[in-house]
Design a protein around this nucleic acid. Structure first.
Lengths: 239, 239
DNA sequence: CGGCCCCTGTTGTATATACAAGTTGGTATA
DNA sequence: TATACCAACTTGTATATACAACAGGGGCCG
């Protein structure tokens, strides 16, 4: 395998490219057994640990499946679809070159009802925090954020100024995410929600329900409503 | 670092857990410089390559940022939200223990109009394939799939029996994904779409627009409509 | 014919060693 | 005061070696 210094990628990356190239070209359909580490070592004239790193990374990226003792196989395409990580609405708006502003309807302490207690690992009647906020982009409402927060995870939540920092940003600091769960669906807003978001009758909303944990402790459960016409959730990724 | 054989994780994983534990506990806020590989080697009594693997993997997972020569730093929480990969509706329905069936409205060759030409890297007037299919779960419509396919990427598309295999499954075989792009939003369906999906007036749809590439070549552009009340897109992931 | 054992080949993990490439800070000189 | 150089420390990559753990196939024995 070539290793001349003309801005070439490292050897483990060349091995990865070689293998992905074989798969994409159709040489190795799914379930095909890929040559063993020792075979690739001989074929490509690189060390077994270099081959091993390439195969391990391709496995982590979803291209291959490995079974200790049995071999390495081309993986079937993964049938899953997930929201990957958690978005900060203020940075998202700034990234579009627009101005973010917030209208705080309330940020207050409440007693947990059955549903919130269940979501946040609390007992009914326990105190928790509740905030309702409209996020605007260049003055236009784009998100209604209805959020419950576990006081154990972020005791100082009520003290924050959420016109200066989003709840999301604050919670990232106070309780770094170790786990998250998302559900996205389409709903019709209530009359109040429609009014807060400046929507016309009959227009739908994109609803994101998002829950996060920090070190096993539930942190927050949020319901984010976006006018369907003015908001889209998306991304682009490489295999 | 303990290495007794009582079902312990490998050393590199223990190093990862130690570092994530320090971050989540608040010991190392974002931007903090993490001890160097050599320092961690001495502190944890494992080899530098074991530490190196742990740090590299935590970097790939978004916890850390590394600069060659400068050091390793705790990463700020990533403000991004993406659909991770591509879902196969048939497997998704099967995973719920339900029966998948399809109603094929058409699968045919057409001439590319301006929008489809742009999406698939074709010239206006070039031939392309177009399919319209309703997917049902236990007889109930859950997805209307409106899909354009680039003949260069999947020349045999028209020959497939899409009651036996989904377009998605076939395309995974014919043109493995190297890149994908998704956009999710909420829309009101047209009268025809509402009828095909068995929805009542005033109910919204979750719309996914999905485009994939194979080795740089555009493969397909699909618009998937789901009744908001009967479909949700979601996932759970660990930090 | 079936089951068990052994051998071979495979992947998984760990370490040591070496060198490359980059950053940073301090010192010396102009 | 600015610039250049050097040393030390950092991360990045590569290889060799060793051993653990697993899978699979073949042969032998009951």
């Amino acid at each position: 395998m070539s290793t001349s210094p003309a801005a070439e990628p490292p050897l483990y990356q060349q091995v990865k490219d070689y293998i992905v190239g074989r798969i994409v070209a159709g040489d190795w359909p799914e379930e095909t057994k890929v040559p063993s580490e020792n075979e690739l070592t001989r074929e490509l004239k690189v060390s077994r640990m270099t081959v091993h790193r390439a195969l391990r990374e391709l496995t982590a990226e979803g291209w291959l499946e490995r079974v200790q003792g049995a071999g390495t196989f081309v993986a079937p395409p993964k049938p899953q679809s997930e929201i990957l990580a958690v978005r900060n609405i203020a940075e998202e708006i700034a990234a579009r070159g627009h101005a973010h502003s917030t209208e705080i309807l309330y940020v207050r302490r409440e007693r947990a009802r059955a549903l919130e207690a269940q979501l946040l690992g609390l007992e009914r009647g326990d105190p928790l925090f509740h905030s309702l906020i409209v996020h605007r982009e260049n003055g236009v409402p784009v998100q209604l954020e209805d959020r419950y927060v576990n006081p154990q995870a972020a005791p100082d939540y009520l003290e924050q100024d959420f016109t200066a920092i989003t709840p999301h940003s604050y919670l990232m600091q106070a309780a770094p995410i170790s786990e998250a769960e998302h559900v996205v669906t389409a709903v019709m807003p209530s009359a109040e929600e429609r009014k807060l978001l400046g929507m016309k009758a009959g227009e739908p909303c994109l609803e994101l329900r998002r829950q996060t944990w920090s070190g096993g402790l539930p942190v927050t459960s949020a319901r984010l409503l976006h006018p369907g016409e003015r908001y889209r959730l998306g991304g682009r990724f490489a295999g």
